[in-house]
Write a protein that binds this DNA or RNA. Structure first.
Lengths: 222, 222
DNA sequence: ACAAAGCTGACACGGGCCTGACACGTCTCG
DNA sequence: CGAGACGTGTCAGGCCCGTGTCAGCTTTGT
């Protein structure tokens, strides 16, 4: 998928680009509305991430102008959390909004949600061994059993579920779960792996420890 | 279903279109009576939403003229809440009226009501577990018990009832329940969920809190 | 055996959620 | 027209849950 990121904060833009690139998306970066227009004229995108505060105007005005002749879904990035801002954005054609500062996992989740909504498929549950995992609601079902995970646990399991068999280091998991300026210890990962293990164990899922390297999700019994 | 919206306020028209599109309707927009005539000549519609204040005349006159040779149901949008206005509209052939500013949920409800009335089907009650919910009258019956909900509570329950099992965030509920320019706190949703819980609890219905995500209606006991 | 790496029970904190109370506007009667 | 009833949205305070850290323990590799 090809995204256009319209954001004047270079550092944040860099971080978002890198993150979305990890999921296999190509991200073009525009620092202003003028640049954005230029990019949109040059090629077509699957998704636009649009900041509202830009050096040469308000992103929402741009959105209102472009919406008529623009099919591409748009997610608005806003620093303000006021209701009027949000409603205004949605009315002017945004598909979703997210308030800064946001965690990367949050951004990824919304990107997927918007793409899926546009794509038309109702919901996507990921098969995990005998179980079915719904990363949107954070539920895991197997047989008659059903478990509801907490937010962070859901994001953690999602990383493993979307990259079957892959081993992730604690550093990688940390980068994927938290926003780029969050100061969190690697120990937190250990804690969450532990909590997640306790939850998904009864459903036949295991997280293997690869000493010195990281963790790996095992769907089949050893 | 294909609707014709006759409304000269572009922003409002856009918002209404988007909202009704979410329910799977196609909405054509006319900014004046002349445009409306043109659209009506070109194709046929299942419902007309008609503003009364238009740049080239009064919508009610238009309605009176057209009624004779127009089968299509009409909902009149009026800014004035005076009783005489309403009565006048209904006399001249409107199927319903709604006063601006209106909430989207209200509009949706009236649209459904008019379509159903025209369609001939008597009333549609939604089964909710052991209970029957009538979103028009806002009554909920189960066994011998019967509860009458207030307006907002009815709209809220309706959202859940029409999307079984789905989880709605407070933001989503806010967008669905209130008009696009209303400045309402998300706390209002919490309050209404609380009030609704107290009402429907005795009838065996529960609203689950999904912390950090939103709310979900549970029809079966845990 | 002894570091280093990983695990986990306990805890403090922050924020999301809930609720009683209130203020405001509207409608309905007398 | 005035008084009361009702529906609605806000606010403040309190509760409770998710979260991240720490300290001490266990496991693993050499």
């Amino acid at each position: 998928m090809r995204f256009l990121l319209v954001e004047d904060n270079g550092e944040l833009a860099e971080a978002v680009s890198n993150r979305l690139a990890l999921d296999g998306h190509a991200v073009d970066h525009a620092g202003s509305l003028a640049e954005a227009e230029h990019c949109l004229a040059a090629t077509s995108y699957d998704l636009i991430l649009l900041d509202v505060m830009l050096p040469d105007g308000d992103g929402r005005d741009f959105l209102a102008r472009s919406r008529a002749h623009l099919e591409t879904p748009v997610i608005v990035l806003t620093a303000r959390a006021r209701v009027t801002d949000r409603v205004g954005a949605l009315d002017q054609g945004a598909d979703d909004y997210i308030t800064k500062p946001f965690d990367f996992s949050e951004l990824e989740a919304r990107v997927r949600a918007v793409l899926r909504r546009r794509g038309g498929s109702a919901r996507n549950e990921i098969p995990l061994g005998e179980a079915l995992f719904d990363p949107m609601s954070g539920t895991l079902r197997a047989g008659g059993e059903s478990v509801t995970l907490r937010n962070r646990e859901t994001r953690l399991l999602e990383v493993f579920a979307r990259h079957p068999g892959q081993t992730f280091s604690k550093g990688q998991l940390l980068d994927r779960l938290f926003s780029f300026d969050a100061e969190v210890t690697e120990n937190a990962i250990e804690v969450y792996v532990g909590r997640l293990r306790r939850r998904i164990g009864p459903l036949g899922l295991r997280i293997e420890t690869v000493r010195g390297l990281g963790y790996r999700l095992e769907t089949a019994p050893a």
